[in-house]
Structure formats: C-alpha cells, structure tokens
Simulated scan of single mutants.
Amino acid sequence: MSSVPARPSPSTQTQRETVTPSGRTAGTRGWLGRVVLGAGGLAAVVALWWLGVALLARHNALAAQFSPLAAVATLPTLVTEDGLFVHVAASLRRIGVGLACALLVGVPLGFAIGRVKAVETALSPALQFLRMISPLSWMPVAVMALGIGDRPVYFLLAFAAVWPVVMSTAAGVQQIDRRWVQLGESLAATRLEMLWHVYVPGIAAHVLTGVRLAVGVLWIVLVPAEMLGVSSGLGYLILDTRDRLAYSELMAVVLVIGALGFLLDSVARLVYRRFAGGASAD
C-alpha cells in the first residue's frame, strides 16, 4: 500500500508563502538601491563638471560652452545638422570589424598557447613585447602601409583588441579540468568532438571575459584612430567640432561617446551572464 504524503501544516504553508515574496522584495530593493547609488554617482560627476565650468567661466567666458547644459542643448543640432547617427553607425561598424578580426586571430592563437607548452614558450616573449606597445604608436606605420581610410583604423583596433582575447583564451585552456580531457580521450572522441564538447564550453567564459575587456580597449582607441583621414565617425566629429570652434557640440559628442561606451559594456556583461552560466561579470 502506497503511503500518502503528509499535507504540510498551515504554518509551513504560511512560511513558504511569506519567504518567496520577501526574497523577491529584498532582490527588488537591492536592485533599486544599486540604481539609486549609480544615479547618485552620475549626478555627482555632472555636478562637479558644472562647478568646474562655473569657476573657469569667471576668468574665461569661452568656458561656458563646455557646461553640461550647453552640451545637452546642442544634441538636437548634432542629430539634425551634423548627422550624428551616421557617425555613430560608422564608429560601431569599425568596432565590429576590429573585434571580429581580433577574435579570428586571438582565439586560435590563445588556444595554441594554452594547449601546447612549446608554443607558449616560443611566443610568450614576443607577444608580451608587442602587447606593451601602445596601439597608437602604430598610427604612422598603419597610414604608410595601408593608406588613409578605414583600413588603418581596422588594423589599429584589431591590434588593440587582440591581446585581451589571446590572454583570456590561453588562460581558459590552461584551466580546463584535465579529467574532462581524459574522459573524452577514453571515449575515443575525435579532435572535432573534443574541441566542440570539451574545449569550447571550457573556455567560453574566459573568451567572453576577453571580449568585454577588448570592447573597453576598442572604445578608447577608436576616437584617436578615427583621426586618420576618415570622413565619418565620432573621432572625426570631435576634430570637426574643434576646428569649427563649436565647443558645446564637442562636449555633446563626448557625452555621446560616454553613453555609447556604457551601453556597449552593459551588452557585453549581459552576453557574459547569458552564456557563462549566469556568473557575475564584475
């Protein structure tokens, strides 16, 4: 005769009903608290910006054009007259191409470094040497070799982004549990099966971490790289507004660069949490 499971007591039911909502409430409060603190930090930065401009404006009337209010007021002009969205699209395209090139080179190279000890020993000194050279140092060489236009920009962005990808991929390969590799080998898995079922899941979180770091580096290098004779992009827009002495528009472009960089980093964190088991990217 099968036993009938005991019905939970009213006190147990009440406890279950109250624990879940309280947990959700605590999570909501924590999220709201982080949002409030983050907004407070941004407000403090804007207040310091405004205060600094106000102090400088006492001695230089031109400084008033750098105020946050002047920057926000000129945003509609940037959109309607300066084609802001065209420049944003050009910059994002270059970021995408540079990151794709960095992944195509960095992931296989990092995999080889992490998988084969001889490759790591042979390449580590050269890679560390190249990694320490600022990507912007290659600007004259890139222009001489590739001309002006998008190609030198792609090269500089890829050169800047490849190192986080290489190092993260190599670290991921080296930290894979050897028991999983031995299990795959004992089951006579092919190289393709080992790659897809053991190595790719094992290094995915590390590669995504490298991608997030690479996006941050790319966004920093992008603006000076777009000063290499291109006719579009946020870096070009910075030069254009400076040459026209439109300093309020220049500060508006700076605001746009900061906002887009924040959004790109947020997207990278969401992708990491989605494909790396929900772990925190911070």
Rank of each mutant, 00 (worst) to 15 (best):
L127E: 08
Q128I: 07
F129P: 07
M132V: 09
I133R: 01
P135C: 04
P135W: 01
P135N: 02
P135E: 03
L136K: 01
M139W: 01
V143N: 00
V143K: 00
M144E: 07
A145Y: 09
A145Q: 11
G147V: 02
G149K: 05
G149T: 00
D150G: 08
V153W: 05
L157E: 09
A158I: 04
A161G: 11
V173K: 08
Q175V: 04
D177Q: 09
R179H: 12
A188P: 05
T190G: 15
L192T: 15
E193S: 10
L195F: 13
H197P: 00
H197F: 14
V198W: 06
P201I: 09
I203Y: 06
A204F: 00
A205S: 15
H206M: 05
L208R: 06
G210E: 06
L213T: 12
A214F: 07
L218V: 06
L222S: 04
V223G: 04
P224T: 01
E226S: 01
E226P: 01
G229V: 00
G233V: 08
L234W: 10
Y236E: 04
D240S: 14
T241V: 01
T241H: 04
R242T: 05
S248P: 00
A252M: 03
V256L: 13
F262D: 10
F262T: 14
D265P: 07
S266W: 11
S266Q: 14
R269D: 09
